[in-house]
Design a protein around this nucleic acid. Structure first.
Length: 613
DNA sequence: GTAGGGTTAG
């Protein structure tokens, strides 16, 4: 090459390397046209690569550049395929691949990972199988990148057997192969097999650990997730953003504020960048663990917020009954140019429902389609049934169930039934209750609910019948469980639990509390929960509810004057609610209870839910 | 060039 041309080429390559946006690129492109460098392989490829695969690139422009290249080489074909595989139009990657085949352009080891990435985002099993055959035929199956990409697509399209067969047969496996398989199993809920592979794999990195953590979260094994995180630290693998996000998600589910705060401290101490997702899960964790103020602080400090972070904060206000603030934030969000999605609306409608903002809720529901171009789904109808029902508009709630464009599911009937409970509607309550024990026949809580409605109306024979049906069908009730954290350890309590090492102390403490409450005029609301027991037994049983045990433990294990924080897996019962209110007054202790659906802040004898739950 | 993380009604 002539020295002058060589200098020109090198200059252009340097310019392309330093190029930061499309404006700059277009200028370089124009120069390349003039000098004819555009048809040169190396500068031409670099130009294409910037347009097709850099963050500030432009795929349409890349296509234009590509179309003008006379006989593009394998690298160029790979580059444009890669561009489409990461785009909204991954199918185009497959089309280009077929063109590549027609033009008899040879593959290389890079072609298949790009192509399979496109398959993974479609995902198209048929295409994957065809590409698989070609990979085998061309011998690339022995290349670990191609094989790994295949595991990934198969796993993603749910063909676990294909993925595993391949995994067991390929000549070469690396850590990515193992991680892909582990992740595939966790995503299908096959935690045992995932554990097995995890144990077998020769070395583990942060991704291996994170897959196990997020897999456990997905399977509802939140404590397990915490324990895996702990083991990861013991093996000196440093958690990154992704691992911390999974861990925070487990904390959010458990209501494990102490552990969540520890993660936040870890982030600060190690200078970890709070990205879009990490910020979002931090907000969600604090809100779900009962510290809305801290959630808001994190939210305000985020550099950039995606729609999920806004939604998490809105939903956070909602579960604390702070509906007005949720709506204010919704307005602010739109001013910030963020478009709400379907999830945002469940947050908004929940906020309205829990705060009794009936007109506002109706307004937003009606505007979903018209203003925001979002079609309400069954979740949104569920919120509306709940909203109307809580507000006592049972007739309207029922009408909505009858006229909604989809079949009502258990959540819809559940919302209606809860409304009947709050407002004491026997006729509708029994009707809905009967539907629920058929639709959700394995769910013990449904039978108990229906039986207690009958009992409340004095129809004991009917109540007994329902209990008998439940017994005959072999259905059991999910036991109530309350968790409370002390010194960073979560303590679980079930009703009547005697497994805690401090059981004696705890029961004694509760007896003292109960005595004090009695002096203040408290009478246990025996209601109609346990109809097969005598009154005295009922009273004993109700005094052993998991929540009360947790509160008693809270009195033993926390400093006077500090809030007692409890997380419950079911709804708060009437009696525990009354007792908690009284305790908060008599002992001047705030009690924060997160139940299955929302928070209750018991303070000075009142509850933040306004006795409306 | 291949692998892991986010907001959802009862």
């Amino acid at each position: 090459m002539a020295p002058l041309l060589l200098t020109l080429t090198n200059q252009t390559l340097t310019l392309l390397e330093r190029c930061s946006d499309m404006e700059e690129l277009k200028q370089i492109h124009a120069q390349m046209f003039k000098t004819g460098l555009v048809q040169d392989t190396i500068p031409g490829s670099r130009l294409l690569k910037f347009c097709a695969s850099s963050d500030s690139g432009n795929l349409a422009y890349a296509q234009l550049v590509f179309d003008r290249i006379w006989r593009p080489n394998t690298f160029m074909w790979n580059t444009i395929i890669r561009g489409y595989s990461n785009s909204k139009d991954p199918e185009q990657a497959l089309l280009l691949y077929h063109q590549m085949l027609c033009n008899s352009v040879p593959h290389n080891g890079y072609t298949f990972p790009f192509l399979l990435k496109a398959c993974a985002s479609l995902p198209s099993l048929e295409e994957t199988q065809q590409i698989h055959a070609r990979i085998v035929k061309t011998g690339f199956i022995s290349e670990v990148y191609a094989a790994n990409s295949l595991f990934h697509v198969y796993a993603k399209s749910g063909s676990l057997t294909s993925a595993r067969r391949l995994f067991d047969r390929v000549p070469q496996r690396d850590i990515v192969s193992w991680n892909s398989m582990i992740d595939a199993y966790t995503k299908c809920g096959e935690m045992e097999i995932a554990h097995e592979l995890f144990k077998q794999m020769p070395t583990k990195n942060v991704i291996s650990w994170t897959s196990m953590i997020s897999g456990s979260v997905g399977a509802g094994l939140f404590k397990e997730a915490l324990s895996i995180f702990h083991k990861m630290q013991l093996s000196c693998v440093k958690p990154d953003n992704v691992a911390l996000a999974s861990m925070l998600s487990a904390c959010a589910h458990l209501g494990a504020l102490d552990q969540g705060r520890w993660v936040q401290a870890y982030i600060n101490k190690n200078g970890i960048h709070i990205d879009l997702i990490l910020g979002c899960v931090l907000v969600d964790m604090f809100a779900k663990c009962g510290d809305v103020e801290e959630a808001l602080k994190v939210f305000r400090n985020m550099e950039k917020r995606g729609v999920a972070a806004w939604t998490a904060m809105i939903a956070g206000f909602a579960i604390h009954g702070r509906g007005r603030e949720a709506l204010d934030l919704f307005v602010e969000m739109q001013k910030a140019g963020i478009k709400p999605n379907l999830v945002t609306f469940t947050g908004i409608l929940t906020a309205c429902s829990y705060a009794g903002l009936v007109d506002e809720g109706k307004y937003f529901f009606e505007n979903m389609e018209r203003v925001y171009n979002l079609t309400p789904s069954v979740e949104h109808y569920g919120c509306m049934v709940d909203l109307l029902g809580r507000a006592g508009q049972l007739k309207k709630a029922e009408e909505l169930v009858e006229t909604m464009p989809m079949n009502p599911n258990v959540a819809i009937w559940g919302a209606l039934l809860n409304a009947c409970r709050i407002h004491g509607n026997f006729e509708l309550g029994t009707r809905v209750g009967k539907i629920l024990i058929e639709l959700d026949a394995d769910h013990g809580g449904r039978y108990i609910h229906l039986a207690s409605i009958f009992a409340a109306a004095g129809q004991w024979d009917q109540a007994v019948k329902v209990r008998k049906l439940m017994k005959d069908r072999g259905v059991s009730k999910l036991p109530g469980c309350s968790a409370i954290s002390s010194n960073g350890i979560l303590h679980d309590f079930f009703a009547g639990d005697r497994s805690h090492p401090q059981t004696q102390e705890i029961y004694l403490m509760w007896d003292r509390i109960a005595e004090r409450l009695r002096q203040e005029g408290y009478k246990p609301a025996l209601g109609n929960l346990l109809l097969d027991l005598e009154d005295e037994e009922k009273e004993t049983a109700i005094h052993r509810h998991s929540e009360k045990l947790a509160i008693a433990f809270g009195f033993i294990s926390t400093e006077p004057g500090t809030a007692i924080r409890i997380t419950k897996n079911l709804r708060v019962c009437e009696d525990c609610h009354t007792a908690s209110k009284l305790i908060s007054k008599v002992y001047s202790r705030d009690i924060v209870v997160r139940d299955r659906t929302r928070f209750h802040l018991f303070k000075d004898g009142n509850c933040s839910c306004g006795d409306y739950w």
